[in-house]
Design a binder for these strands. Structure first.
Lengths: 324, 324
DNA sequence: CTGAAAGCGCTTACAG
DNA sequence: CTGAAAGCGCTTACAG
C-alpha cells in the first residue's frame, strides 16, 4: 500500500498540514516537530506524490520550451539536456509544451517560456513580450534571466590542462557558426594561452561542422596538411569523437602522440573521453527555476554554472615530457 | 481561466459524471447526450487535465523502463523513441522509473516493466518473474507481449525500392552485433532479392559499427577496395549518414552514381535522407498499452508495426536507367 | 507554531 | 442511461 501524508501525520502525531509544511520546507514549523516528522518520513521511505502536489498547488504552471531553429534535436547534447529539463519540470510539478517556431499556432496557455539556444533571441523575446509571457533562457542575453555553463572558463581550463601536460603545439577544432558558446570556448582557450608565463602560445583554430563527421574531417585534413599538434581541444564532445576517429584511421596513437580534450561532458560517447564537463542537471534546474521565477516577476538573474574537467584516457603528457 | 469538466457539465446541462463518461468513451451514455457533450467540449476547446485524471483514477500505475545494457542512450534513435515513450506515459497519466541494470536497488514499486532492446531478455524476465512484476517489451520474444517495427518487411521494401529504380549492384551496411533488428532487416533485404523474377541477386553485406563513423568507414573502405555498388541499403540512418559522408569525401555523386537508403526514419539527420521509416509514435503507444495491459494480465500480444519508405533526394535511378 | 477544512480536476462505485 | 457524492494525495488560506 502506498504510504501517504496521512500515514506520516498519524505516526508523527501531527496533522497532515504540518507534514505538508515540513515537506515544503516552510519556516513555520517547530524544529522539534520537524525532526519528528522527518524521522517518520525516513522510516517509512515516504516520497511525496508529484501528481497530487501539482493538482493541489493552486498555481499550476505550464512552461513553454522554445528551441532555436538551428538546434539539432537529435544530438546527444540536446538529448541529455532535454531529459534533464523534463526531470526538473516533473519535480516542480510543472507541465510543459514544446513550442513550434511559429508560436502563434499555440493554443495552450503558457505562464513562461524557456528559450533554448536561440540565435534570434531579441525577436523571440519581443514576440513573447507582446503576448505578455515572461521568458528566461539557456544562453546569454541582457535583460532576461539566463543560465549557461562557464564556456569561457572552460576554455581556460582546457588550456591550463593541456599546458600542464607539457603540450605546446595546440589545435582547437570548433564550429564554423558563430554560436556564443563556441566563441567563448575558443576565446577562453586562446586568452589563457596568450597569458602563459613563458612564451605566449597561439593555438591553430580550425572551423567546420559540429558533428562527429565534422570533427573527423577537420582532424583528418589538418593532419594530412601537415599540422602536427600534440594537444587538441574540441569545442564539443561530438567533434572530439570525430577527431579521435580520424586519428585512429591515420594511425596516430592517443594519448601517446596526441591528447584530445572535448567539451560538454558526454563521456559515454567514447570510452575514456576526456572532457570539460558541463553540469547539465544544474543548468536544467536553474533554467526551470529562472523560468518559474520569471512568472513571479522576480529580479533578473544571470547564472553561470561552473564546468569541470573529466579526466580520461585520451589525455596524456606531451611526447617526450613527463607529467607533473 | 482553465476550462474544466464542471464547466462542460454546466453548459451541456448534465452532471460531471456524465461528462467524464463521455471523455472516457464509456458505453453507458445515450448517443444524444454524448453528442451534446462532445459539441460543448469542442466549442470550448476542452482538454482533460492529465494530472487530475491520474490522481482520481484509483489505479495509478508506475511503469519501469529497463534498457538493454548495450543500448547507446545518446543515439538519435534512442532519443526519439524515449521522447515518444515519455509523451505516451504522460497521456496515460502513468509515472515511470528508469531502471538501473541492477534492479534489486530499486525501492519504488512498479506495476509493470517495459524492456527496451535487451539482449538478455530471458534472464531479465526471470528476475521480474521472481518479483511478480509483469513485463512487455520492445523487440521480439515468445511468451510476453511485444511490439516491434516490421524489420523484415522493411528490408523487403528496401530491396523492392532499389530494384524498381533499376539498381542491380547492391550493398548492405549493417552492424556487426547480432541484434534481432539488424538480422531481420538484412534477411528481408536478401530474401526479397533472391526471389527476384529475373536473375536472383545477392547483395554484398558488410558489417561494422552502428554509428555514423561506422557507416563512414564501411563505405569508404568498400569503395577503396573496389566495390562499386549503385544501390546501398543501410541498417540504420546513422550508418547511412556516415556512408553519405564517405561518398561525399570520395567524390561520388548521390544520387547520380549511387543511391542510399537508410532505416528508422530519422530523416532530420541528413537533408533529403531516404529511409525506411519506423512509426515510432505508434510503437511507443503500443509499448505502453501492452505494458499497462500486462498489469491486468491481459492476453499476450505480438504487435508488428508497419514501416514505410520516406523518399528523399538520396535515392535515384541506377546510372543509365530511366526511372519508371 | 499548528489544526481543521476546503479545494485542485477528475473518476467511479452506488443508487435510481 | 444519469446524478449525487466520495475520494485520489496533497496544499493553503483561515483560525487559533
Amino acid at each position: 500500500m502506498k504510504i501517504t501524508i496521512g500515514e506520516i501525520a498519524n505516526q508523527a502525531g501531527v496533522s497532515t498540514g504540518t507534514v505538508s509544511r515540513v515537506i515544503n520546507g516552510k519556516p513555520t514549523v517547530a524544529s522539534e516537530t520537524r525532526a519528528t516528522v522527518l524521522a517518520v518520513m525516513k522510516k517509512l521511505g515516504y516520497e511525496p506524490d508529484p501528481v497530487a502536489r501539482e493538482l493541489s498547488r493552486r498555481t499550476k504552471h505550464t512552461l513553454g520550451i522554445w528551441v532555436g531553429a538551428g538546434e539539432n534535436r537529435l544530438s546527444p547534447y540536446f538529448n541529455v539536456i532535454w531529459r534533464a529539463l523534463m526531470r526538473e519540470m516533473q519535480l516542480h510539478a510543472t507541465q510543459f509544451v514544446e513550442l513550434p517556431v511559429d508560436i502563434t499556432q499555440v493554443r495552450r496557455r503558457m505562464d513562461a517560456v524557456l528559450l533554448f539556444h536561440c540565435a534570434d533571441i531579441d525577436q523571440r523575446l519581443d514576440t513573447l513580450w507582446r503576448r505578455g509571457v515572461p521568458g528566461a533562457l539557456i544562453g546569454h542575453h541582457p535583460g532576461v534571466s539566463c543560465v549557461a555553463p562557464d564556456d569561457m572558463g572552460g576554455g581556460r581550463m582546457a588550456a591550463a590542462k593541456l599546458l600542464s601536460l607539457g603540450h605546446r603545439d595546440l589545435l582547437h577544432l570548433t564550429v564554423s557558426d558563430e554560436h556564443q558558446w563556441a566563441v567563448d570556448r575558443a576565446a577562453g582557450f586562446a586568452a589563457s594561452l596568450a597569458e602563459g608565463s613563458s612564451a605566449s602560445l597561439a593555438p591553430v583554430i580550425l572551423r567546420g561542422g559540429g558533428s562527429v563527421l565534422g570533427g573527423y574531417r577537420l582532424m583528418r585534413d589538418a593532419w594530412q596538411q601537415g599540422h602536427r599538434p600534440t594537444g587538441i581541444f574540441c569545442a564539443t564532445d561530438e567533434m572530439a569523437v570525430g577527431a579521435l576517429g580520424a586519428l585512429a584511421d591515420l594511425g596516430v596513437s592517443v594519448p601517446g602522440q596526441v591528447s584530445v580534450l572535448g567539451f560538454d561532458g558526454l563521456v559515454d560517447l567514447y570510452p575514456g573521453l576526456a572532457s570539460v564537463a558541463q553540469d547539465i542537471p544544474a543548468i536544467a534546474q536553474e533554467a526551470v527555476t529562472l523560468a518559474l521565477g520569471a512568472i513571479e516577476r522576480e529580479v533578473v538573474r544571470h547564472v553561470v554554472v561552473p564546468v569541470q574537467i573529466i579526466e580520461g584516457t585520451t589525455l596524456g603528457p606531451a611526447p617526450g615530457k613527463r607529467p607533473h
